[in-house]
């Protein structure tokens, strides 16, 4: 992905900023300009808490080019507590320990590096909840 393309996605990538529909209140991630629930405009930024659970997962034994460093790595659909599903890598977990329903939390990690002299791309991944009792 080109540098400007990565740069303009920073808010979503680094901290899971989405949108909330002004009309029906649906929380949206990724951000989009028209609410898929009620087809009204949705432009209001919304900060997701980054907590959720694994809706489904897989383990890639054949990495995508640029992701070889992590192979084999788990990828999940994470159901955020505010509603949306997010596609993301799981990190700090052994693939055999992942299960559907596992509580996870968002962390910001390296997604890929565009070669040794290129951009380092950071973004959200999810990991098993470190300390369930922590508030906030």
């Amino acid at each position: 992905m080109a540098i400007p393309q990565n740069w303009r996605l920073q808010n979503q990538r680094y901290r899971l900023t989405g949108e909330v529909c002004n009309t029906c209140g649906a929380k949206l991630f990724p951000p989009r300009d028209v609410c898929p629930e009620c087809a009204k405009p949705a432009y209001e930024p919304f900060q997701f808490a980054g907590k959720g659970e694994v809706y489904s997962f897989t383990v890639l034994s054949e990495a995508l080019a640029g992701y070889e460093a992590y192979e084999p790595y788990p990828v999940a659909l994470v159901k955020l507590q505010e509603g949306p599903l997010v596609t993301a890598q799981l990190t700090d977990v052994d693939p055999q320990d992942v299960h559907i329903g596992m509580p996870v939390e968002m962390v910001t990690r390296k997604l890929t590096e565009e070669g040794e002299d290129g951009l380092i791309v950071y973004g959200y991944k999810f990991r098993p909840v470190l300390k369930p009792a922590v508030n906030g």
Partner: peptide, 20 residues
């Protein structure tokens, strides 16, 4: 550090904890 960690990602998590 794991393969997806560096000083920036470490700093981010520590900073989020401090902010909380």
């Amino acid at each position: 550090p794991g393969p997806d960690e560096d000083a920036a990602t470490i700093a981010i998590e520590a900073a989020r904890n401090a902010l909380s």
